[in-house]
Write a protein that binds this DNA or RNA. Structure first.
Length: 807
DNA sequence: AGCACGCCGACT
DNA sequence: GTCGGCGTGCTC
């Protein structure tokens, strides 16, 4: 029976009026194959685009004559499951993103379509222009870009007008399945027959047939034959033509080479505490019950082992597990441990993988060839269909929030997915985010606690050094006397030290000592950062670069010099004080290259350096037995940021960093240098006293009406024209004031902390609320005004629900 | 977002 | 008189 079959398709066009399903007719040929979650190629206006089938039905609100047919199925099987389709709808609503963005974020980047334009000659007899003819060289279809390059655009246009030539958009997959040429060798008998037909003087052919006879009946890669025999491809070709073998192209996975750090001994006996924490998690797994656990375990308390054993349980049940880590390349030791435990069942989604490699890992997951995924934020969308547990390690990390559309938090997605699969979520941290701990306190989450280090090592001895005292007693170096002394001791004892410099303090800027001018970015409202390696000043916001000035651009004084402390400068100072110390520096400059991170860490673990000097990136995951000293050079730099999470971040960082020392037999020592030693974030981090810190910080959050007492939504406006941006910010804020409930606090519009970036002026407006039922609806209206009207005048507006910072 | 249609200024 | 500027409107 023939029936009209209609599908709803979300097309790959991110624009406001397009952000809804479009109906298409399914040609009969596709009717048995088409499913929800399949990608299709459809005509859209005058072009062809990729779309996602989100629904199948047999009638449309539109007249049938208005519908156009689907042109092609891109997939045979759905690339998105029913659950993922639902998840994408939820994601789009929650984060106020386009549905297409919410769909695409679930797939590897390589699956995003690329569009190429071609010109197609309809009537080659009518092409009169010689240059055009020469370019075509008899072809009927060439890339449009070739026309542009040859400067024949005008002629093309006239041909298009006369319909001699048409323009065609082609949808392209960025990467294909990698295929390897495989040779299936015939049986010996057949090969001997073939050998008879070879002429005596065809030495190469005889050589090859003899090799093939030795490997009769096998299937080998062509590459292996070439390597083993040294013969050329054409000889093999002849042999195939003579019937000695058959060739096929077989699908293979690209083998990403993962860093092999030292193996971690397999099963570990749990401590009583770990066992107690594991118990309720296992119970939830066995009961098929959704429950969110917050595992609060001090550094070195063995959270990872709890994860591993929970996953073991999940695998026994025949289910799958997702493990999120903040930044995969920073935790090679952790991933190595998962690989050691679960071997081939683990897929690791590195940020360093190529697009093709990521695609291959995605396919392994999709096909069910692996059962455990370890990866950063986007791995939360891993295409499993029977999830048994989702784990977020270091759940407080801000990298779990995506800073572009869709602006989702992996924790929220984890909970949403686990509700669907009726499985537990495990949030682990030594320093939980206030939000999560508050939820645990209110029994929204189940709190599990590990108070002791797993190998019952002592927590490191932490000393807070008051740098004001150092300054008073005449020490103007960036190393306090106690820290310098401690480093000296380690060098003598052949133990290792880690020196940590907060990222924000990493910038060093240029200041004129006569007039006080700092050299600022011409496009942004921020000082330029000095980069020693290329003797350049760079802007970290827009990428502007310039030469270091020799005189002050304001007063032409020569007394212009660098201020602030960068890793490079620290490295130089170490070289001065400890000329024999071997230093490995890890920062954005030294780890830019692929694999550099792992290489530097390996060198350090092999004892090829005495001091590891680095930024933020060395704060987590480092676990080497010989580290007995950790130094924080300037703890204040994160503390005084104009951010409501500044204290929380500082506490977390200090605790994380301290946790790097003395994790094994040797006891550890930590020095925290600061100008504000009395600050509770620093005082309490010293003893890893999370609970008192939580209480103090909650008090201050309540007082100022910050999260978790209030929810935030941040609206940012930017425009080249300072007057226009303030005007739109005003209009937007007024609209919100008029439409949100009276209990909701709306702050702004105010100029952003960095009031200009890339020559665009920035304003913002902050919405604070406890309960705001009209929020989504009101924001949608605001976005509609922006996208249908304001956007035309060059305004950029972004809406961030639950922002990580309110800069 | 693209892409085409359509209505007014500076050039062959 | 035409080329081309970008305002407006639509895409199943």
């Amino acid at each position: 029976m023939i029936r009209t079959m209609i599908v709803e398709v979300i097309v790959d066009v991110a624009a406001y009026p397009i952000d809804r399903p479009f109906d298409y007719i399914v040609p009969e040929a596709f009717q048995t194959t088409i499913e929800r979650g399949i990608r299709v190629k459809v005509p859209f206006g005058r072009r062809k685009v990729v779309g996602y089938v989100t629904n199948i039905k047999n009638e449309s609100e539109l007249a049938l004559s208005k519908l156009r047919p689907i042109e092609e199925l891109i997939d045979i099987e759905p690339v998105l499951s029913e659950e993922q389709l639902m998840l994408s709808r939820w994601l789009a609503t929650e984060t106020l993103a386009y549905q297409i963005d919410a769909l695409q974020v679930m797939l590897p980047a390589a699956m995003r379509a690329k569009y190429d334009k071609f010109i197609v000659v309809q009537d080659s007899e009518k092409i009169q222009d010689e240059n055009f003819q020469r370019l075509l060289a008899g072809r009927k279809r060439i890339p449009l870009s070739a026309i542009n390059d040859a400067g024949l655009f005008r002629i093309l246009k006239s041909y298009v007008a006369e319909e001699i030539v048409t323009v065609d958009t082609a949808v392209q997959q960025q990467v294909d399945v990698k295929k390897v040429r495989t040779i299936h060798i015939e049986e010996k008998e057949k090969l001997l027959q073939v050998k008879e037909t070879i002429q005596q003087n065809a030495i190469r052919q005889i050589e090859l047939i003899d090799w093939l006879i030795e490997h009769a009946g096998q299937s080998v890669q062509a590459k292996q034959i070439f390597e083993a025999t040294g013969i050329q491809s054409n000889v093999l070709k002849t042999m195939i033509e003579r019937g000695a073998a058959q060739e096929t192209y077989e699908e293979v996975y690209r083998e990403p080479t993962s860093p092999e750090l030292q193996d971690v001994p397999i099963p570990e006996k749990l401590t009583d505490e770990q066992d107690q924490a594991l118990h309720p998690i296992r119970q939830a797994i066995m009961d098929d019950r959704h429950e969110t656990f917050l595992l609060h375990g001090i550094t070195g308390s063995g959270k990872t082992e709890v994860y591993l054993q929970a996953i073991t349980k999940v695998l026994e049940k025949g289910q799958e597990a997702i493990v999120l880590v903040p930044e995969i390349s920073l935790t090679p030791q952790m991933t190595a441990r998962f690989k050691a435990r679960f071997g081939q069942l683990v897929a690791v989604l590195h940020s360093a993988l190529s697009a093709g490699e990521k695609y291959d890992e995605w396919r392994k997951i999709h096909r069910g060839e692996v059962k455990v995924v370890v990866g950063a934020r986007s791995a939360i969308f891993a295409p499993f269909e029977n999830i048994g547990i989702i784990i977020l390690d270091e759940e407080h990390e801000s990298t779990y929030k995506q800073e572009e559309s869709p602006r989702y938090h992996a924790r929220d997605v984890a909970i949403k997915r686990s509700e669907y699969y009726k499985c537990p979520v495990l949030l682990g941290s030594a320093t939980p985010s206030l939000e999560s701990y508050a939820r645990a306190s209110k029994d929204v989450y189940t709190l599990l606690t590990l108070k002791n280090r797993a190998k019952s090592q002592q927590l490191p001895e932490v000393e807070v050094v008051d740098m004001r005292q150092q300054l008073k007693s005449g020490n103007r170096s960036m190393f306090s006397i106690p820290l310098a002394e401690a480093i000296r001791e380690r060098l003598e004892r052949n133990e290792q030290s880690v020196l940590f410099l907060n990222r924000r303090g990493f910038s060093s800027f240029v200041l004129c000592r006569d007039c006080g001018t700092t050299v600022e970015c011409p496009n942004c409202d921020i000082s330029l950062t000095y980069h020693r390696a290329h003797e350049l000043l760079k802007c970290h916001y827009c990428g502007h670069e310039e030469r270091v000035p020799t005189v002050c651009p304001q007063c032409e004084s020569e007394h212009i010099r660098f201020f602030g402390t960068g890793t490079q400068k620290v490295e130089e100072e170490i070289a001065k004080i400890f000329p024999d110390a071997r230093v490995i520096r890890m920062d954005v400059d030294t780890t830019r290259r692929k694999g550099a991170h792992e290489r530097l860490l390996r060198q350090f673990s092999e004892g090829k350096a005495d001091i590891l000097l680095g930024t933020q990136m060395i704060a987590k995951g480092l676990d080497f037995p010989n580290i007995t000293l950790v130094g924080v050079l300037a703890a204040d730099t994160t503390l005084h940021l104009a951010d409501f999470r500044a204290a929380e971040k500082t506490f977390q960082l200090m605790t994380q960093v301290s946790g790097r020392a003395g994790r094994h037999e040797l006891p550890g020592e930590v020095y925290i240098q600061t100008y504000s030693p009395e600050h509770y974030a620093i005082e309490l981090a010293k003893e890893q006293h999370y609970e008192p810190f939580y209480q103090m910080e909650m008090q201050s959050r309540r007082q100022f009406g910050y999260p978790p007492f209030y929810f935030f939504t941040l609206i940012q406006f930017s425009h080249e024209d300072v007057l226009k941006v303030s005007d739109f910010a005003n209009r937007g804020t007024t609209f919100l004031r008029g439409n949100l409930s009276s209990n909701t606090v709306i702050i702004g519009p105010t100029a952003a902390a960095i009031s200009r970036v890339n020559n665009r002026y920035r304003y913002q407006c902050l919405i604070k609320y406890k309960k705001e039922p009209k929020l989504t609806e009101t924001l949608q209206q605001l976005i509609r005004m922006y996208r249908t009207d304001w956007i035309k005048s060059g305004l950029i507006m972004t809406v961030d629900v639950d922002p990580m910072s309110i800069f």
